[in-house]
Design a protein around this nucleic acid. Structure first.
Lengths: 223, 223
DNA sequence: AATGATCTTCAGGTTGGCTTTAGGCTCCGT
DNA sequence: ACGGAGCCTAAAGCCAACCTGAAGATCATT
């Protein structure tokens, strides 16, 4: 059971880490928002404990970014009870549960277990474009009844297109969405993936839903 | 924020209605499928909460009918977890998200908000000149029901004209809009594009909506 | 280590949009 | 009627954008 703890107060972080380790959790700790987002993106965790007030990027933003990126790991938000931050906002941005500071360790443990057990939120919003269905929770995709196997990168690119079905999405936008912030490779990579996607989602079905708009980008149509 | 709740269990419907009302939603309730379909058709809602098992018409059918009719209001499906109904089927018929009963009210609220937020993203306004429709987001154009393929440059020129439909737009204005600042080629290029546009948007339809105003520029009319 | 899957780079080939050119046409003033 | 300025448009060259197969690099798993 892997836990990511994003908490800048070193003392609290240490206590929680030690406690959870003793319960059999494998705990990674990040000390600011950006590191937390990075680690959550790079590793698969079973649950993330996320403080709201963090240096370099607040908890809401981290949470929202993860959800945007299709990461639906259960998130427990830690909110300081000084009234500035709203608990409902935590749930809005995609958190699954929250705990107000100060909290007792026993309560945290119980709620964490509950969260892991029920698997967090049931499912993210699915995207439908014609008879093409994307399920971000399982990184799954199908056209009609036919399941289509996609690699994570392929899915990310298709997801970026599907979220704005009917609109032209530029190559640089796709790059920004599906690749790391600081990817500086050949933008041609997008073409390579579009090509692969067409071979999977269009050709076998005799469709042409993934349109090239020369000089502008690509458009996914609900053919 | 208007919500349509289609749910036959009176007690549950009442609870949800009261809760959502308290959050500032305006809630209408229908107690069977056919009423629900009717109300959804007649009124504009921001989101629809739809039980699967309903008298007189089940949730899948209501959902499918709405989508067939071109109604794309975000739909949250409520599925009873007794295995008879499949969640995937909900997504198939065009639902945007689903929630398994029993669910907690907090979760429903959070997911509803997520749905509305996503569905609420409005596309850039399309421009209409008579029966000519321009969709800037998709770089698409059609006259009536007929889709017209335009290159990005052609679209840019037509867009410049359509935004000021009925007015005369000078060649230099079009140049400034559709070409780079640093373009120093032949202004004749505008004539070339106007020519190409006429061949595409007027000739096939026996129209003449793109008028030359000698010595001044061009005017697009809502013929 | 070895294997297989995925990601990325590379390079050759192709396409199609942009621009220029040039000859013909239209309008308008003289 | 005539000439010229402004406009139209077919045609063709050019070049950036794009496609795609293949090979190398990376990563995860056994």
């Amino acid at each position: 059971m892997r836990v990511l703890l994003v908490e800048d107060e070193r003392r609290l972080a240490g206590l929680v880490r030690d406690g959870l380790s003793g319960e059999g959790f494998a705990v990674d700790v990040a000390h600011d928002g950006r590191d937390g987002l990075w680690m959550a993106t790079e590793n698969p965790y079973d649950v993330i404990v996320l403080d709201v007030m963090l240096p370099r990027m607040n908890g809401y933003t981290v949470c929202a970014r993860l959800r945007e990126a299709g990461n639906w790991t259960p998130i427990m938000m830690l909110t300081a009870k000084d009234g500035v931050y709203d608990e409902a906002e935590a749930l809005d941005t995609g958190a699954d549960d929250y705990l107000s500071k100060p909290f007792s360790y026993v309560v945290l443990l119980a709620r964490l277990r509950a969260l892991v057990r029920r698997g967090g939120r049931e499912r993210p919003v699915s995207i439908t474009v014609g008879d093409l269905v994307l399920d971000p929770a399982g990184l799954r995709c199908r056209r009609g009844e036919v399941e289509i196997a996609l690699t994570p990168k392929e899915f990310a690119v298709l997801h970026g297109l599907a979220r704005r079905a009917g609109e032209v999405v530029s190559k640089s936008e796709l790059l920004a969405q599906a690749w790391d912030f600081s990817y500086d490779g050949d933008p041609n990579i997008v073409e390579v993936y579009v090509s692969a996607l067409r071979r999977k989602i269009d050709q076998p079905f005799g469709r042409s839903s993934l349109i090239t708009v020369r000089g502008a980008g690509y458009r996914l149509e609900a053919t």
